[in-house]
Design a protein around this nucleic acid. Structure first.
Length: 799
RNA sequence: GCACCUGUGGCGGAAUUGGCAGACGCGCCAGACUUAGGAUCUGGUGUCUUUGAUGUGCAGGUUCAACUCCUGUCAGGUGCACCA
């Protein structure tokens, strides 16, 4: 038992005073840039999940520092956003005041855990010296045509009163309040992320991300290849353009479907004889939330368009056109050719509406279900006889292009990024709307465009930003013509500030540019980025997009921002469920620090299981780690100055090796287990020297730095343990002289023999065959086979 | 529905990647020291019908040898979700 409270305070101060965790911009050492996702400073303070998220790279950074790296391990605060604004409204205060208080609270809590962050580089996305550069990047995007306004169906949260991006409304629920999203036609800002879709996809090949992370991004981008085909519409000049991934099945088309919102309907109004019915159907669909529309996938609905029909460009056959909400306006062209024989959805629709089903690929039984597999083409004129999907697709596309009725095409599921929120607590969008000049960027020298001080920042009922109610902010002069103009009043979404924050860490106080190119050149890319899986399809994709854009602008020097990406698993409540206030199973890290100390908290969080997997919190597990650190501390009383402990030499080398390698592979649980084993051995042997204990203290330091500093000092170690040299191991000394070999007869374990490490097959087999424990299994039988794996096993197969 | 991941003691989890399953920790049992123990220390602890057999969700298969590879299947988790 030791006084952890006093010790932890003492060494946290010592680290601050010695500036040991500050990164050097000019250094000849190799660099390591370790990045963790900066927290949103919420009012409820830190969660044990934050500690786990930061502890991984904390241990790696500390080890790298001890190994002689110049380490940049920064932290900051992603502080713009709705929760703070909502609680400011609730408590009738200002988000600035809340944000400052929350940041102070978080800072105190982070320091209390002893994280080795470089506190001189802390950033706050709501700081005007920071968001000046967020606005700068927005203007660059605008000037390059990548930020634009468009009126389209958007995801709208009626509760938060904001437009949400696709990424923020996954599953048809608002990411902030979990209300149902509704679709609404609105004039909003977009960032043209789709222009970078291919590069975001290709870039994944050059980075070291967890396979799940890559896969999720690939799925989110959702690239598909196929063809666009133009269908004439009878009695009109219309050409109905569709997208399909299966042009090979074009002879099997028996109807077409367009989305309820498809603009062709209005254009063909005069020819359509049931326009009212179609209009009624469209209105019915509009009432459904996105969620309902996608959940109702069992029963297909739709209305046939009367008065016009499509014409298959291959054979000029007339085919009916339907309006149905299983086709989305937001993907492809909002219109499809339907091949019921070979598409499940089309099949279901055709069955319900009694439409013909024509088989064009052999192999299934289309009287019972759609056949989506491969097979020989039939009923398809020039494609008949082909039996490979790839060949027939290629052949068909050639034909379409030759005849000028279609061409090869690519589609993405990813849509452009809806980039504005109608709320107060975000970066103002630096654009002026001028009657004469249109949308005009605020001149760079006027940045930052500050958020005005206001008393009332509640969102407007009509979906307008609170900023719209402030005449002094809204009314301005056009920067181009000087006439009266109005400012954009929407703000940027939560994800803006985090899309480039890692760049600012490199040069956080620069007021000339977002970061000095020389410093970027030295530090970038981020060597290792760890964070949660929940950010893989949002923050990760957004920031990769901004980074690639900045690379194209010449503002950064690497095409990809993150060389490596890992993710920690959740900490579940003691009941094995996800921690939540409503379940009442939330563990407060402060209480653990108070009761057991920061070292115990850190060690336990990394010991509780596989870092990448979810694991439930266990109060008794904490006690085990407490016991471990107490037993390490107690070794000091046992340590002798002179001599060595030969019995432990190999164990020390093995443990140093294992801990060094395991940390690098994020196998923190087995690294700690190895140190616990070593400790048990030390107690078994009953003696240890000062130098040996120093070695243990050094390798334990990244996990439990406070007690290690204390022991380091008591043992007479030079300087601070946190920056002392990481121990090395001697491979030769890791080898044991003898080894225990398992003896199997017919694959069944019968016992073990201890032999010299270098013992050869013959000598070991000889030993086994003459061992009375094994002779009964061999005598009187024929030996069919003898297997010998050096250092592991012998297996004698008898008959 | 599709994709990916995970199934190992009472619990969290190990297993050098095909070579002694259950490291390490928790819990539990017994003992020691104690006025006391939710402190500390020592020993034990997969299961069973215990000189042996059996065992990594389930059923098969490959192999001298399978938690590990293959086929099928069940269960749980995560993500996407009428994407044409």
């Amino acid at each position: 038992m030791y006084d952890f409270k006093q010790i932890e305070k003492k060494w946290q101060k010592a680290w601050d005073d010695a500036h040991v965790f500050e990164a050097q911009d000019n250094s000849t050492k190799p660099k390591f840039f370790g990045l963790v996702e900066f927290p949103y400073p919420s009012g409820s303070g830190m969660h044990v999940g934050h500690i786990k998220a930061y502890s991984g790279l904390e241990v790696i950074s500390r080890k790298k520092r001890m190994q002689g790296y110049n380490v940049l391990f920064p932290i900051g605060f992603d502080a713009f956003g709705l929760p703070t604004e909502n609680s400011a409204i609730k408590f009738n205060t200002h988000p600035r005041i809340l944000t400052d208080a929350n940041i102070e609270k978080f800072t105190g809590q982070l320091k209390q855990v002893g994280f080795s962050f470089d506190w001189t580089r802390t950033i706050d996305t709501t700081d005007e010296a920071y968001y000046k550069w967020t606005q700068h990047i927005f203007l660059e995007l605008f000037k390059n045509g990548l930020a634009f306004r468009d009126t389209a169906l958007v995801n709208y949260c009626p509760h938060c009163k904001v437009v949400l991006s696709n990424e923020d409304s996954q599953g048809g629920k608002c990411d902030i309040c979990h209300s149902d999203i509704v679709q609404k036609s609105k004039d909003v800002w977009y960032l043209r992320i789709t222009k970078y879709a291919d590069r975001l996809l290709e870039g994944l090949e050059s980075v070291d991300y967890l396979p799940q992370v890559k896969q999720q991004q690939i799925n989110w981008i959702g690239k598909s290849t196929g063809a666009f085909v133009n269908f004439k519409v009878s009695g009109t000049d219309e050409e109905l353009r569709i997208y399909t991934t299966r042009p090979d099945t074009l002879f099997g088309v028996t109807f077409m479907v367009i989305a309820p919102e498809h603009p062709m309907l209005a254009r063909c109004r005069d020819r359509i004889t049931n326009f009212d019915a179609l209009e009624a159907y469209r209105e019915e669909c509009a009432k459904k939330t996105e969620f309902q529309r996608t959940q109702l996938n069992k029963d297909k609905t739709g209305v046939k368009i009367e008065g016009i029909c499509g014409i298959n460009p291959l054979n000029n056959k007339e085919i009916p056109i339907y309006v149905a909400d299983y086709v989305m306006m937001g993907y492809g062209t909002g219109a499809i050719m339907a091949v019921p024989a070979h598409d499940e959805r089309d099949y279901e629709f055709a069955k319900k509406f009694g439409i013909d089903i024509i088989e064009v690929i052999k192999g299934g039984d289309i009287s019972t279900e759609a056949y989506t597999g491969d097979g020989e083409m039939v009923n398809s004129e020039f494609l008949n006889g082909y039996d490979n999907k790839k060949d027939s697709i290629k052949r068909m596309i050639e034909y379409l292009e030759e005849k000028g009725i279609g061409e090869e095409g690519v589609q993405y599921k990813m849509k452009d990024w809806a980039f504005n929120r109608q709320r107060y607590w975000g970066e103002p969008i630096p654009i002026v709307h001028c009657e004469h000049c249109g949308m005009v960027p605020v001149p760079e020298e006027e940045l930052p465009l500050r958020l005005p001080e206001v008393k009332n920042f509640e969102p407007g009922e009509g979906g307008e930003s609170p900023l719209a109610k402030i005449p002094e902010f809204v009314n301005c002069k056009c920067p181009v013509c000087g006439k009266d103009a109005k400012r954009e009043t929407d703000t940027m979404p939560q994800w803006a500030g985090s899309s480039w924050y890692f760049l600012r860490y490199v040069d956080p106080h620069n007021d000339k540019c977002l970061a000095d190119p020389e410093k970027l050149k030295y530090w970038m890319p981020v060597d290792w980025y760890n964070g949660g899986m929940e950010h893989v399809t949002r923050h990760m994709i957004y920031s990769r997009f901004w980074h690639k854009f900045l690379y194209d602008m010449g503002e950064v020097n690497t095409e990809e921002p993150y060389a490596k990406r890992t993710a920690q698993g959740l900490i579940l409540g003691p009941d094995g469920e996800k921690m939540s206030k409503s379940r009442g199973n939330v563990v407060d890290p402060n209480e653990v620090v108070e009761q057991y100390g920061a070292d115990v908290l850190r060690t336990y969080i990394l010991f509780m299981g596989d870092y990448g997997a979810a694991a439930p919190w266990d109060v008794n597990g904490i006690k085990g780690c407490k016991r471990f650190l107490d037993r390490v501390e107690a070794l000091f009383a046992m340590a002798k100055d002179k001599g060595a402990t030969p019995a432990l030499e190999a164990s020390f080398h093995k443990t140093v090796k294992k801990v060094t390698i395991d940390i690098e592979e994020m196998k923190f649980n087995t690294a700690i287990a190895a140190m616990m084993s070593l400790l048990n051995e030390i107690y078994d042997v009953g003696s240890i020297t000062t130098d040996e204990l120093k070695t243990l203290v050094l390798i334990l330091c990244p996990f439990a730095p406070h007690i290690c500093e204390e022991l380091w000092e008591r043992l007479g170690g030079e300087g601070l343990c946190s920056v002392a040299k990481w121990p090395e191991w001697d491979e030769a000394k890791c080898e044991d002289k003898t080894v225990e070999i398992a003896v199997q007869i017919l694959g069944k374990l019968k016992g073990t023999v201890t032999v010299d490490v270098n013992a050869d097959k013959d000598s070991v087999l000889n030993l086994v065959k003459n061992d009375p424990r094994f002779t009964p299994f061999i005598e009187g039988k024929t030996i069919v086979k003898e297997i010998f794996v050096p250092g592991k096993i012998v297996n004698i197969v008898v008959k």
